[in-house]
Computed example of a mutant assay.
Amino acid sequence: MRLLVAPDAFKGTFRAPEVAAAIGRGIEAAGLEPPDLCPIADGGEGTMEALVLALGGETAGATVRDPLGREIRAGFALLEDGATAVVEVAEASGLGLVAEHERDAEAATTHGTGDLIAAAVDAGAGVVLVAVGGSATTDGGAGAIEALREAGGLRNARLVVLSDVRTPFERAAAVFAPQKGADAAAVRRLERRLDRFAAELPRDPRGVPMSGAAGGLSGGLWAAFGAQLEPGAPFVLDAVGYDERARAAFAVVLGEGRLDATTLHGKAVFEAATRARQMGVPAHAIVGQDRLDAFGKRMLDLQHVLEASDARDLEAAGSDLAARLLSETRPG
C-alpha cells in the first residue's frame, strides 16, 4: 500500500516539502512503505521550490528592490538545462518583505520583480515562469514594466504567468489591496490609478481573467509583453507528474494550512482532489485548520480530513491516517 503525499505549503508555517516529509515519516512509522512525496503549489509561494524538486535545476540570485524600494537579495531558479526560469513575485515584491506597520498599497512597487525577471533573462532563460502569489503591490505591474524596459526588455524571452486567482485587472484593488494596507479611500484611489494605467498600456487588461493577480501585475505583463496567463495549480500538477503518480498510488494525501471555502476556487488542493476523483483514486487531507463544511468536502470527495498544527502533529496525523487505511482494508 503506497500513498502519494501531495501537500501545498501551510502558509506562514511550513513549506510544502516540510509538510510532505513530516506526513511521510508518520506513514512509515505506522508500518506502510515509504510514500511518494510530491509537494505541490498553485502559482503562489512555494511554486519555485515544487518545480525545482520535481524537475531538477539550480537556484541563482540577484540584487533587486523590495516593495518599498530597498535593495535586497532575491532568488530565482533555472530548471533543467537553464532554458526555463522560475521567478516568484513573493521573493522581490512580497507582502512578507514588508513589516505590518510599513504596509502601503499605494507606494508598494513591483520594480523588484522586473529586476528579477531581467536577471533570469540575463542568465539565458528563454521562458520565464512568473508565480504571482503573495505580493504586497497594487501597481498594475508598472514597476516591473519599467524595470524590464530599463534592462532592455525580454530579448526574445517569453513570459508565462502562473496565477492562483482568476480576478480581472479592474478588481485587483477592491479584492486584494485591503490586506496590503489600503483603507477604503486608498482602494478607490488605487482603482482610479489602475484604470488610468490600463488605458495607457498597449493592450487593455481589464476584463481578462487572471489579469488582477499580484495587484494587476499579471495584467500589466500580459498587456506590455504578451505574457501568457495560466492557472497555477494545473500547470504545477502537470509539471510534477501528479496524474501518473496518483494513478500508481493506493490513495493520495493532500494538505494545506487552512481548508475552507476559498479552497474550492482553484487552489492546489482543489485541483489535486478533483483529478483524484476523476481517476478513481481515494483522496484524504491533513490540514492546519479544517473550516470546510460537509458540502465542500463532498465536492472534493475527501474521505478523511485530519488537523495538524505542528511538525509532531503532522507526523501523528500521518500515522493515524495510515492506521485507518490499514484497518479499513483488512478483511472482516
Rank of each mutant, 00 (worst) to 15 (best):
residue 240 V to E: 04
residue 135 S to A: 12
residue 299 M to P: 07
residue 25 R to V: 02
residue 58 E to S: 14
residue 239 A to L: 06
residue 20 A to E: 00
residue 194 L to N: 07
residue 124 G to K: 10
residue 4 L to Q: 10
residue 24 G to Y: 01
residue 20 A to S: 04
residue 200 E to S: 15
residue 70 R to Q: 14
residue 268 A to H: 01
residue 78 L to S: 02
residue 167 T to M: 08
residue 272 A to Y: 05
residue 75 G to Y: 01
residue 17 P to D: 08
residue 102 E to P: 06
residue 313 D to F: 06
residue 192 R to M: 14
residue 237 L to Y: 03
residue 138 T to E: 12
residue 184 A to K: 03
residue 252 V to C: 10
residue 246 A to C: 13
residue 224 A to F: 02
residue 149 R to Q: 15
residue 185 A to Y: 03
residue 173 A to V: 02
residue 323 A to E: 15
residue 107 A to S: 15
residue 188 R to T: 15
residue 164 D to Q: 02
residue 284 H to L: 13
residue 257 G to F: 10
residue 314 L to T: 11
residue 177 A to W: 03
residue 330 R to M: 15
residue 212 G to A: 04
residue 176 F to H: 03
residue 25 R to M: 11
residue 113 T to W: 05
residue 7 P to D: 01
residue 66 D to H: 08
residue 57 G to A: 07
residue 67 P to M: 06
residue 79 L to Q: 08
residue 54 A to W: 07
residue 257 G to D: 07
residue 52 V to K: 04
residue 29 A to Y: 00
residue 313 D to Q: 11
residue 13 T to L: 12
residue 87 V to R: 09
residue 35 P to T: 05
residue 19 V to M: 04
residue 50 A to K: 06
residue 240 V to L: 13
residue 122 D to A: 14
residue 144 A to V: 01
residue 263 T to I: 10
residue 263 T to V: 08
residue 164 D to V: 06
residue 175 V to I: 13
residue 94 G to S: 12
residue 33 E to M: 09
residue 39 P to I: 07
residue 186 A to K: 09
residue 250 F to M: 14
residue 62 A to P: 03
residue 116 L to T: 00
residue 332 G to Y: 13
residue 23 I to V: 15
residue 253 V to L: 08
residue 217 L to W: 09
residue 306 L to G: 05
